[in-house]
């Protein structure tokens, strides 16, 4: 059985390699071009630093605002998608709808929202909200499903209402996890937001794409370096905050 699975696995990978035209020789032939590209990005052009920084700021704003709004919107959705607190008639539709919307990536949402509300950072924020709400709702729901039932029993036994049970029996158990998931999402959203500019949804991606199209590699490398620095700073701050939560 295990051998058969292994065999099928290798077969699938082999076919995928053939179908995608994966070819080490082609890669080796491409190496000089990669080196040439890297060579031409040196030195980075400092003149575009102000616009790169402005773009980075917009990207951080898109991720921050989008994540914050999604963190709140996901709360009710998280509760209705948790098997142990939601009634079955709510739970099953909620799970299905969330899985449906979660399978669409932020960038695809951005295309939709750019078409709907026009160019700029705003459709970027909407795209981050759309994706993050559903993905956080699922994480929230799973956290709620993992709680200890004991405190919930105890609060129920006091004659508390459903809302009070959620607030005093469930929420204290999951809140630190929720915050940690929100920070984790913020980190991934910063990365996702760097490419939103490619489709006209604002931020640093717009500059990267523009300079690459203009074949201004020194300028593009400045933008890339700023992007890397921005992601590293946000990651560092966020993971330090997360460590203190759990």
């Amino acid at each position: 059985m295990r051998r058969a699975l292994l065999f099928v696995g290798f077969l699938a990978l082999g076919w995928a390699a053939w179908d995608t035209g994966a070819d080490p020789v082609r890669l080796a032939r491409g190496v000089p071009f990669i080196l040439d590209f890297l060579w031409r990005t040196i030195p980075p052009d400092p003149r575009v630093l102000p616009s790169a920084l402005a773009g980075a700021l917009t990207t951080v704003e898109i991720a921050l605002l989008g994540t914050a709004v999604a963190a709140v919107l996901a709360l009710p959705l998280g509760f209705v998608s948790a098997r142990n607190v939601a009634p079955a008639p709510l739970f099953y539709p909620a799970r299905t709808v969330l899985n449906f919307f979660r399978s669409v990536d932020t960038l695809v949402y951005a295309l939709v929202f750019v078409a709907a509300v026009g160019l700029g950072p705003f459709p970027g924020v909407l795209a981050v909200v759309a994706y993050t709400t559903t993905s956080l709702a699922k994480l929230y729901g799973e956290a709620i499903e993992g709680i200890e039932p004991g405190p919930v029993d105890a609060i129920t036994a006091t004659g508390a209402t459903r809302l009070q049970i959620l607030r005093f029996g469930v929420l204290p158990q999951v809140l630190p996890l929720f915050l940690s998931y929100v920070l984790y999402r913020l980190e991934t959203n910063i990365r996702a937001a760097t490419v939103l500019g490619f489709v006209g949804a604002g931020g640093i991606g717009f500059y990267l794409q523009t300079y690459l199209r203009m074949i201004d590699y020194p300028a593009a490398s400045t933008v890339l370096l700023v992007t890397v620095a921005m992601v590293m700073i946000v990651d560092g701050v966020s993971s330090r905050l997360r460590d203190r939560l759990v």
Partner: peptide, 24 residues
């Protein structure tokens, strides 16, 4: 009700746990 495993809300303060008795 008093439970074998106490069933306090761990992250809440002692006072908040007792106050939960008033929820009804």
């Amino acid at each position: 009700v008093i439970f074998q495993q106490f069933n306090l809300v761990r992250r809440a303060s002692v006072q908040e746990n007792v106050l939960a008795g008033r929820l009804g």
